[in-house]
Computed example of a mutant assay.
Amino acid sequence: MLVLLVSSAGCLGGGGQSPVDDDTDPSSDSNTTAPSEDLEGTLEIHPINVGQADATLIIAPSGETMLIDSGDWPNDGRTVIDYLNAQDIDRIDHLVTTHGHADHIGGHAAIIEHYETKRNGIGAVWDSGVTHDSAAYDRYLTAVEEHNVTLYATQEGDEIPFESEQAQATVLNPPADSKKPDDIDYNSVVVRVEFGESSALFTGDAGTNVEERLLETHAEALDVDLYQAGHHGSSTSSMPAFLDAMSPQATIISSAYDSQYDHPHEEPLAAFAEREIPTYWTATHGTMIFESDGEAWTVATQADATTDPTALREDSEVEADPTDPPTEYEPLTVLIVDEFSDHHMRSSVSSSAAVATGVIA
Rank of each mutant, 00 (worst) to 15 (best):
F195V: 13
G207W: 08
D183G: 12
V190A: 04
V191L: 03
A206H: 13
G207Y: 00
R213K: 12
A200H: 06
D182Q: 07
S188A: 14
G207D: 15
T203F: 01
I184R: 15
F202E: 09
G204R: 09
V190L: 02
E216L: 14
L215N: 06
N209C: 03
I184G: 09
E197M: 09
T217Y: 02
V189F: 04
T217P: 03
N209D: 14
P181H: 05
V193G: 06
A206P: 09
T203Q: 13
F202S: 10
K180V: 05
G204I: 10
V210G: 13
R213I: 12
V191S: 01
T208G: 04
S198E: 01
D205F: 09
L215R: 11
L215F: 07
P181W: 06
T203V: 14
A200S: 15
E211Q: 15
D205V: 12
R192A: 06
V193L: 07
S198D: 03
S199K: 04
D182R: 15
N187I: 04
E211A: 00
V190Y: 03
V190C: 04
D185Q: 12
A206G: 15
T203G: 00
A206C: 01
S199H: 09
T203A: 01
E194A: 05
R213T: 01
N187W: 04
L214I: 07
S188L: 05
L215W: 00
A200N: 00
A200P: 03
F195N: 14
L201M: 09
S188Q: 09
V190H: 01
K179R: 13
F202P: 03
D182K: 15
E194V: 02
E216P: 07
L201H: 02
V189T: 13
R213L: 07
V210H: 02
K179P: 01
T217M: 06
G207K: 14
S188G: 13
I184A: 08
V190T: 11
R213H: 04
P181K: 10
T203K: 08
V210C: 04
V210T: 15
